[in-house]
């Protein structure tokens, strides 16, 4: 089973995201900030990471920088999921090596559509 790390400082968001992503056939791990996410990845790289931007201790973008420098750090597909919704942030994220970008609020359709686009799951139809 593919694994997805859900990184968000809000427990509610993690819970909602987890339910959506488990429905897509992943097993989920949670982390509440970039540092905790980094620790998880040091032990075992997930296949996908859903990543918030603004978090205490270590932000999402800092984490992404560090992740992509790790040995297996190129493996996970990273999908930002944040209230930051302007072109500058999107560009920064993509330049830092994100694979997709979700602007909050999100729903299951959006997560599914984005996961499909980067090949994490098959498309619904066809």
């Amino acid at each position: 089973m593919k694994t997805c790390l859900v990184v968000d400082d809000s427990r509610v968001v993690r819970k909602v995201a987890r339910r959506i992503i488990e429905d897509l056939g992943f097993s989920c791990i949670e982390a509440e900030d970039g540092q905790k996410a980094y620790d998880v990845c040091s032990k075992k790289m997930p296949d996908a990471i859903l990543l918030d931007w603004n978090m205490p201790v270590m932000s999402g973008i800092e984490f992404l920088d560090k992740l992509r420098k790790m040995g297996e750090g190129g493996h996970p597909k990273v999908v930002f999921c944040t209230t930051e919704n302007d072109m500058d942030h999107i560009q920064r994220a993509m330049n830092a090596g994100a694979n997709e970008y979700i602007m909050k609020p999100f729903d299951s359709d959006i997560v599914e559509s984005k996961f499909a686009q980067i090949g994490l799951i098959e498309t619904k139809t066809g």
Partner: peptide, 13 residues
């Protein structure tokens, strides 16, 4: 909402 359903972020950019 509409630009996040089906549209890859690269195309949005």
């Amino acid at each position: 909402f509409e630009v996040q359903r089906g549209l890859p972020i690269q195309m949005l950019m």
